[in-house]
Design a protein around this nucleic acid. Structure first.
Length: 484
RNA sequence: GGCCCCAUCGUCUAAUGGUUAGGACAUCAGGUUUUCAUCCUGAAAAUCGGAGUUCGAUUCUCCGUGGGGUCACCA
């Protein structure tokens, strides 16, 4: 309960399966995960599906999938079990009911029969008077026995918690002291009925039941915290430690929404971002190590992660920087490994020749800033694109000279024995020629003819991958453009 | 609107009661055996405004401004 008695670190990842895995959820999860890992703590995955109308099994699957893809694991959860389960709130209704009944016995809650229309009217009235809209307490003083009877007779009533009019203060690990006057809050609804708790209440019960030590969540929850602390006190639970993370903002620092960019993790996955890059990028959105470094693999993040170094202000999402992280991780990645990541991004037929693909990857790696971009880069290796003969002309070199140069190169390349054909040998043969005839004059048409592209890898690398026959074929086809 | 949180280059951020306010991405200019990319070098670029505390504040305090969050029988 106090700092002197250190509780074992147990954090929870608590996504709501009301949509596909969100970028913000991914980052909150990452910070929880890093914190737990760096403290040898346990991680609990809890599915917060008390909103039965919006919660969907498919979203739960998507979220779990996405979290695993990012490389996270957990010690307890709906899929792996654990001694504090079940781990779906929907399966814990008995537990909530028990505490709700306790609350009724102690008269800390009451039934509220106000209709939604009525409440909305009240709200508007208060708003128009410039007041903070809060529940006025119309049902607070109804006779509990009578209220219970009405509910038993089938009348619908929500369950409200009597919020005491006191100042609530808590210490946030990131922000320090935060205090709120609960008088401004009004009695909050904590359950639709005994079998249908709401987030505010279910979370508090679960955090206690699951022995959670630290609640690390987005700043959007900061105003929920005093309410939950009040609930904890009423339930006589130990207080947990809180850390509220700064929010991810849109690139223009406004509120993050789908209007500005993709907010679902799957979009980034499908665009060919590496989970390693995403994790590194997300970690640096609001956090930074002591030293100046950017590329930090996850093991290093764990080693250096510290909640106290988390930024307080919101962080704008910068896709360009993400792309940079991605290209860095791609360049550093072993080509074999890269190939396995590439599988879902390329035509199946390409997979028939893995050796060739590895060669292409080696050559094109530095030009890749996403897995999805590889296909376009690799296409010329499988099929020479159609191109206009103008592409072969270096600066103001004439067609005639270009043709001559191509023929000359072709003859020289032909002389190289198959067994000795490769980048090194090609350079040895061709580079001296450029001393005489000019670099651009020889190399440009050669490269353009081999790739059929305005921009590509260099001619020696190209030929190295294409092989002697295909290279000569392409050079001939380039020369033919002028013969015709 | 009430309440809460926040504020260093365009962006992510480092640092300190005294520094030429550092790094990274992006930008610009060069260089590295032709193009593109990689890589290297260099340049430009910031302490939101105003008071106060102090010998000295970007750092501490207050006010203002700006941004964000929240005020659901969503989470």
């Amino acid at each position: 309960m106090t700092d002197s008695v250190k509780k074992p670190v147990r954090v929870r990842m608590a996504p709501s399966p009301t949509g596909p895995l969100h970028l913000g959820t991914a980052r909150t999860t990452l910070f929880n995960w890093l914190f737990a890992k760096s403290h040898n703590g346990k991680i609990i995955l809890r599915i917060e599906d008390t909103d039965f109308e919006r919660s969907k099994k498919e979203y739960e699957e998507d979220i779990i999938n996405g979290l695993k893809w990012l490389g996270f694991d957990w010690d307890e959860g709906p899929d792996v079990g654990g001694q504090y389960g079940p781990y779906r709130q929907n399966e814990r209704l008995d537990i909530y009911e028990k505490y709700l009944n306790k609350f009724f016995d102690e008269e800390k809650v009451y039934y509220c029969f106000c209709s939604k229309e009525q409440l909305e009217e009240d709200r508007q009235a208060m708003l128009s008077q410039g007041m903070a809209p809060k529940y006025g307490g119309r049902c607070r003083n109804l006779d509990p026995k009578e209220a219970k009877k009405r509910v038993e007779n089938g009348e619908h009533a929500a369950i409200r918690f009597k919020v005491p009019p006191i100042e609530v203060e808590f210490t946030d690990i990131i922000r320090g002291k935060v205090s709120v006057n609960a008088e401004l809050i009004g009695d909050i609804v904590i359950a639709r009925n005994l079998r249908s708790p709401l987030f505010m209440f279910a979370g508090v019960v679960d955090d206690f039941e699951m022995k959670i030590s630290h609640v690390i969540r987005g700043e959007d929850h900061i105003t929920n915290t005093p309410k939950q602390i009040l609930l904890q006190r009423a339930l006589e639970f130990d207080e947990v430690k809180y850390a509220h993370l700064p929010l991810i903002l849109a690139p223009d620092r406004s509120k993050l929404s789908k209007r500005h960019l993709e907010t679902s993790l799957n979009d980034y996955r499908n665009e060919g971002f590496l989970p390693e890059a995403l994790v590194n990028f997300l970690a640096f959105l609001g956090w930074h190590p002591t030293e100046d470094k950017e590329i930090m693999p996850v093991e290093e993040l764990i080693k250096e992660f510290d909640l106290r170094r988390v930024q307080k202000g919101g962080a704008a999402f910068n896709i360009v920087k993400l792309e940079w992280f991605n290209s860095q991780y791609i360049q550093k990645m072993d080509s074999k490994e890269l190939l396995s990541r590439l599988e879902s991004f390329i035509p199946k037929t390409w997979l028939e020749n893995p050796d060739l693909l590895i060669k292409i990857i080696d050559v094109e790696k530095s030009r890749m800033n996403s897995l999805a971009g590889f296909k376009n880069l690799a296409e010329p290796f499988f099929e020479l694109p159609f191109y206009d003969k103008k592409l072969l002309l270096w600066k103001d070199i004439s067609e005639k000279d270009t043709l001559r140069n191509l023929k000359m190169l072709s003859e020289e390349i032909l002389k190289i024995p198959e067994s000795d054909f490769g980048k090194k040998r090609l350079e040895q043969i061709i580079m001296p020629l450029t001393e005489v005839w000019g670099r651009g004059e020889l190399l440009w048409p050669l490269r353009a003819g081999l790739s059929g592209r305005e921009a590509s890898a260099g001619p020696f690398e190209l030929m190295d991958v294409l092989g002697k026959d295909e290279s000569l074929k392409r050079i001939k086809s380039a020369a033919d453009k002028f013969n015709a």
